[in-house]
């Protein structure tokens, strides 16, 4: 059993999604505990990827491929988990605000969240406010994460929270913000639930935000 978990871990690290699917299916058929597959197969690979990324031994594409493998792994084992055993810490709908085409910072945050236990729905760049809201509703998301590198696009963060307030839905979603011109003061001004300066800090911030009810407190990791 340890052997197959080691192989799963290696396949996640190498970003070989088809191999991950094959090995996880095999492990499930052999009766391996689903939580063990996640904790001893997927998680160590992602920790190693994160560490190697910080040491500049692997780069963003490898990190993203690893995140995709973990998503596939969790998708396969989820139906086998007990009803009280969530596979993810939370579900995040993430994107870059309307008018902004920058994607690297947002993708790095999405990947970091993905490899640290969040289910991430990446909407891409130039995402209109209504699309954030509609997709968050459709997906049953816990968190809406909005990034902007442009001052002209950051205003949509305030619009999004304003719309949630005016529609009486602020208690449905935690909203976190980030990106070049966005700082703690702006996050406070628009009434966000969280702000982080870097992708690494975003994980720490979101872990804390998930402890709070939406719209009740601001968590800052700067």
């Amino acid at each position: 059993m340890d052997d197959i978990l080691a192989k799963i871990s290696e396949a996640v690290y190498e970003g070989e999604e088809e191999e991950v699917v094959r090995l996880v299916s095999q492990a499930l058929e052999q009766g391996t505990d689903p939580q063990t597959i996640i904790q001893e197969g997927g998680v160590p690979a992602l920790s190693r990827l994160g560490e190697d990324f910080n040491n500049e031994e692997v780069f963003l594409p490898e990190l993203m491929l690893g995140g995709d493998c973990m998503k596939a792994l969790v998708g396969l084992v989820s139906p086998h988990l007990g009803s009280d055993q969530g596979a993810y810490k939370g579900k995040v709908v993430i994107g870059t605000a309307q008018g902004d085409l920058h994607d690297i910072g947002k993708s790095l945050v999405a990947t970091q969240l993905s490899i640290h236990g969040y289910e991430v729905i990446d909407l891409g760049t130039d995402v209109p406010t209504n699309v954030f809201l509609d997709r968050a509703e459709e997906e049953g998301a816990d968190i809406i994460a909005v990034s902007s590198l442009l001052t002209t696009a950051q205003y949509y963060m305030g619009d999004l929270i304003g719309r949630l307030n005016s529609e009486g839905r602020r208690n449905r979603f935690r909203v976190v913000v980030g990106g070049g011109p966005v700082g703690p003061d702006y996050a406070r001004e628009v009434g966000a639930d969280g702000y982080a300066r870097t992708a690494h800090l975003a994980v720490k911030m979101l872990d804390q935000v998930m402890q709070n009810e939406p719209g009740t407190a601001l968590v800052i990791e700067a």
Partner: peptide, 11 residues
């Protein structure tokens, strides 16, 4: 980021 006090909104 503002034009005569109004927000300079993208698009």
């Amino acid at each position: 980021d503002t034009v005569m006090g109004s927000p300079l909104l993208a698009h």
